[in-house]
């Protein structure tokens, strides 16, 4: 039994069924990446795993208990989430933003323990944002801003971290930077990561466990090598493609076929 799991999960959004009878066990200590075409329900699934969306049927369990039944503050000490488009309060500095990540560990009269201080310092260090700490978030470039948000989620010090498309709006260099950071969090700090990604090549490079979704169902899951085949690409994306080993890493690389 893994720490985070979904059993027979069905999710509705605005009265429309998005995810149907889906079961997933998130492997502990690994990087899991969810891929799939637009509107396949991958972000909705991530939101449900983070208890932001109540299931229509089925359950999400955290440490064997239904996540919806657990106090949200206690969940927040175990599971962190970075949504796709978080809002930074106007005028907030990077240091203050990252310090917000300590919220579930704080109280009205426990506002800044030594643990808070060292967690924020470590998060700034790990994401390379320590030099930016005094700047306002609106002054940052897209890549820097994304790293600051990841630093906030990191300062929360949760063993589980869910990231919804952490590389959107970033150029290729910054995408690699963020994904390398995510891998370091997993390898060096032992965090379990689940993220939604658009780019299949990058997903294959950085995932230990790949989940391919379409129409609210999981069509395939496993190692990138097992999942990414011409047949699954056709089934998931409706695209004819060749799959070759990435010359850099040996992981699968999808080359769409030329139109006839």
């Amino acid at each position: 039994m893994t720490r985070l799991a979904a059993t027979d999960l069905s999710l509705d959004y605005g009265g429309r069924p998005i995810v149907r009878d889906l079961s997933l066990a998130v492997p502990d200590g690994r990087v899991t990446v969810i891929i799939g075409p637009n509107a396949c329900g991958k972000s909705t699934l991530l939101r449900a795993l983070a208890r932001l969306l109540a299931p229509a049927r089925g359950t999400v369990t955290l440490d064997g208990k239904a996540i919806a039944r657990q106090p949200t503050r206690e969940v927040a000490r175990v599971l962190g989430l970075l949504p796709q488009t978080p809002l930074a309060p106007e005028g907030i500095t990077v240091a203050d933003l990252v310090a917000r990540g300590r919220s579930p560990h704080q109280g009205a009269f426990r506002q800044w323990s030594r643990a808070d201080e060292s967690a924020v310092a470590a998060a700034l260090e790990a994401t390379g944002t320590a030099d930016l700490a005094g700047l306002r978030v609106e002054e940052l470039s897209g890549g820097q801003r994304q790293r600051a948000w990841i630093a906030m989620a990191l300062a929360q010090e949760t063993p589980l971290l869910l990231l919804d498309e952490p590389t959107t709006f970033l150029d290729l260099r910054h995408q690699i930077e963020v994904l390398a950071l995510v891998r370091r969090l997993n390898r060096d700090l032992g965090r379990t990561v689940v993220m939604v990604l658009h780019d299949i090549g990058l997903a294959c490079r950085y995932a230990d466990h790949l989940v391919a979704m379409r129409d609210g169902c999981i069509l395939a899951e496993g190692t990138p090598e097992a999942v990414v085949t011409p047949a699954t690409i056709r089934a998931v994306f409706g695209l004819e493609a060749r799959v070759i080993p990435d010359p850099e890493t040996g992981t699968p690389l999808v080359i769409p076929r030329r139109e006839p």
Partner: peptide, 23 residues
């Protein structure tokens, strides 16, 4: 004034606030 902490987190959006443990 006591609600200030929660409001402060809510300014980052419903999802982030919930993820940070705010009811």
């Amino acid at each position: 004034l006591a609600l200030g902490r929660g409001l402060d987190r809510l300014e980052m959006g419903e999802d982030v606030a919930t993820a940070l443990g705010v009811r």
